[in-house]
């Protein structure tokens, strides 16, 4: 028997004590369970981020968002345009120091494709209150298939540091009663 600061002499590649062998086996089995759960949950769990991802020029993304805003604008709140897009459409949200543009007015039980990107630095999309988080990276369009399942007043916190006004960056998504309310949530 020796400590960890002594050079072991001779052959130390020997069978481990029984208790240790059993523990290694239990630990290994547990790790394999965890490992198996990952693909299993991915294919059966129905909770994956449904990302459709592609590169996009940050300026082009901003232009596309502003076009979308003009098209479906229904009002303004705290200086930010409010947009009510038709059911099933592609909807856009732009992170830009230090605003989420625009305010979205959606319908419960209706599917949309929500695009997220930034025209300056990284931002963090954090939907309050359900606490759903996505990284928003300039140059990448992150499109998520969403179906709001409950009417309500949702907020979008920025939770990636984006400069001195980071903590002022708060957006809004209003979900109104839709035609039929289906269960589901973000898929």
């Amino acid at each position: 028997m020796h400590t960890g600061i002594v050079s072991p002499k001779g052959v130390w590649w020997v069978k481990a004590p029984k208790a240790e062998r059993i523990w290694v086996m239990i630990a290994f089995a547990w790790c394999m369970v965890l490992f198996a759960m990952m693909p299993l949950w991915h294919y059966r769990g129905g909770q994956n981020p449904s990302g459709i991802r592609h590169k996009v020029d940050p300026e082009a993304y901003e232009a596309r968002t502003l076009e979308f805003v003009e098209q479906y604008r229904v009002g303004e709140e705290s200086g930010i345009a409010v947009v009510a897009p038709p059911p099933g459409s592609d909807i856009y949200m732009l992170g830009k120091m230090w605003q989420w543009i625009p305010v979205l007015k959606l319908q419960a039980g209706v599917s949309y494709t929500l695009h997220l990107s930034s025209s300056d630095v990284n931002h963090g999309f954090n939907l309050f209150p359900p606490n759903i988080n996505f990284q928003v990276v300039p140059g990448y369009d992150y499109a998520l298939r969403i179906t709001p399942n409950e009417p309500g007043d949702y907020k979008v916190v920025c939770n990636e540091f984006c400069g001195i006004g980071h903590h002022l960056m708060l957006g809004r998504i209003i979900v109104e009663e839709g035609p039929v309310v289906a269960a589901g949530g973000i898929q």
Partner: peptide, 21 residues
Amino acid sequence: GTFGVPRRHYDISFTGAPFDI
């Protein structure tokens, strides 16, 4: 964090932000 409180965030009372939480 499980309530959604962000890291790296100066002010979760959102004083001066366009909306509140």
